[in-house]
Design a protein around this nucleic acid. Structure first.
Lengths: 333, 333
DNA sequence: TTGTATGCGTTATCAT
DNA sequence: ATGATAACGCATACAA
């Protein structure tokens, strides 16, 4: 069974190739009886449209490009998964490239995918600035996950970072904590700063003072959590609870605690952000803010599909986090 | 700057389109002076070959398909990363699809990618049996990661699972442990069983008896580790050390220990397998067998490239694991 | 070494 | 509703 072409199908069905194309693409009306004939012929020959030919002729690749900072990492996996799954059901393809969170590499990834004639670009990047993106948007539909760009709001899938950490902090406060420290992500990262803002807001609203001493910028990594804790202790800042910029940093806090003989949550409470898979399996199980990564990815893929292939106007969505209470936070006596 | 075609480049360079094609594809000799002219023209027009046209004409998509069980998960990420990175450097593309470790879904993924005219298939699957794969191999070059199929050895990137667990177990024995239990992965999984074999071999070689009581088949997941431990305790099997089928299961052992008030490695030692990222960050840091996922992925991608685009014969590679000593195993006094 | 001409498999335009 | 036919942009025999 070698590859059959549209021509063979058409002759076997006794119609023109154009008609076959009409039934495969579902783009024009076809009499029900002829449709059946064609479908039968397709099945008999095991016909699969040649996508290169389709692309060449239709000027569409039926493929979306996706760029993520890293192919590994607990955060990107679920996002890729959601995008791929959604698009596959819609019979579209994804080509994923990694950008390593570096401007140069991410731009190369863009070029790489553009050369591939992708119909749109889903971007979960960190090194592409607003100028570049606005420019890019003129050439191809783009969809941004986790990055806010003025003027591109409608193509933005966004998380309410501020509100998320606000909730997390309030949870701590509700448990009686007053001396709370915050281990923030990289200062140049948008989301890191929004989260810091949520922390400050919650603290002030509760009548608690927040000075620079209670916040340290490190990174969204295990190492960042470790360093952050060390910094706080070195600087003599007292605390009964720590909110980590993300779960990985929270694991760093755990690690620091283990190294120095502290017990969580007995000695101090910890809350994270993202709700990555591992968070449910560390000891103590990490209380955190659930980031609806998967839903966000699906929404993003759907939005892209709708705009590109169905001419619907895109509409940005702002997602909210949910508090996931587990075992790493206890009431302060 | 709209998309320039090969025709415009050729006329601007004062050569035929065929010559332009020759320089882009690097497939036929071109006089150095004309090459420069062409290159200049390409640059001036920002020429990017239309890959759909290339595919259609050359009957090559310059794209490899890759199927993994899950897009997330600590194991697949590094593998995807290695493949993507390697291929991108070689100017080839990867389309990744997930198969969810289910036969049906994985076969659909194959069809999906075949329809896309991929030039080859890199398979990191769990639901595709030998028969199917041997059949598939007749239609398209395939490369198997982590799955041994008789007759397809040359297209196989394989890990010496047996030797890995053998080493892990010997490490435990060298530390004075005699009562060792093994928490194995799913019984229908090839690698799970090879690992069990390595365990038995090491035990017997050391003159230690190994009965069915010391081995329990659960799964390669955190939950599997938890259940495995519970099973061992319920059945009253004594032990001073446990080897887990993989790191995730080892985390389950950690979790079980935490829930029941045991302290690792004081109360018992634990060794894992895979060396996933998190293993370095749990407490205590997990001793484990390093699985060269990334290297394996790169080797696989390179092999695929060489065979498909350079007609070189593929050659399967068997990788070895390395013992990574961290803090979860201590000497038995 | 370079040019000419044809074909790749599909979609889209224009008829009918 | 359906058919005929011209693109689509490139690679590749074949010729020169």
């Amino acid at each position: 069974m070698k590859k059959a072409s549209i021509l063979e199908v058409s002759s076997l069905a006794g119609v023109s190739p154009a008609t076959v194309s009409r039934v495969t693409s579902n783009a024009a009306p076809v009499r029900e009886t002829t449709r059946k004939k064609v479908l039968a012929a397709m099945k008999e020959l095991g016909y699969q449209p040649n996508s290169a030919a389709q692309s060449l002729s239709s000027k569409r690749s039926n493929t979306l490009g996706m760029i993520v900072s890293h192919l590994d990492g607990p955060f990107y996996g679920p996002v890729m998964s959601g995008v791929e799954e959604t698009l596959r059901k819609l019979n579209k393809h994804v080509i994923i490239a990694s950008g390593f969170a570096e401007e140069q590499a991410e731009k190369e990834a863009v070029d790489f995918l553009m050369a591939r004639q992708v119909d749109g670009l889903i971007l979960l990047t960190e090194g592409l600035d607003s100028e570049y993106l606005k420019d890019l948007e003129k050439r191809i539909p783009i969809y941004l996950i986790n990055q806010h760009v003025d003027g591109l709001e409608i193509r933005n899938m966004y998380l309410d970072n501020d509100d998320g950490v606000y909730q997390a902090t309030r949870h701590l406060i509700a448990q009686g904590h007053k001396d709370i420290i915050y281990i923030a992500g990289q200062e140049y990262k948008q989301d890191a700063n929004e989260r810091v803002a949520g922390f400050k807001r919650a603290m002030r609203e509760a009548g608690l003072t927040v000075t620079g001493k209670q916040i340290v910028h490190t990174s969204f990594e295990v190492e960042g959590g470790i360093k952050g804790m060390q910094h706080m202790v070195d600087s003599g800042t007292a605390f009964t609870a720590v909110v980590a910029g993300n779960d990985e940093a929270a694991f760093g806090v755990y690690e620091w605690a283990a190294r120095h003989g502290y017990s969580i949550p007995k000695d101090f409470s910890v809350i994270g952000f993202d709700d990555i898979l591992m968070s449910n399996y560390v000891s103590p199980r990490l209380s955190t803010m659930h980031f609806p990564k998967y839903d966000m990815a699906k929404a993003c893929a759907t939005m892209a599909y709708q705009e590109i292939y169905n001419k619907k106007l895109p509409e940005g969505i702002k997602f909210k986090t949910d508090l996931v209470i587990r075992d790493s936070v206890i009431e302060l006596k």
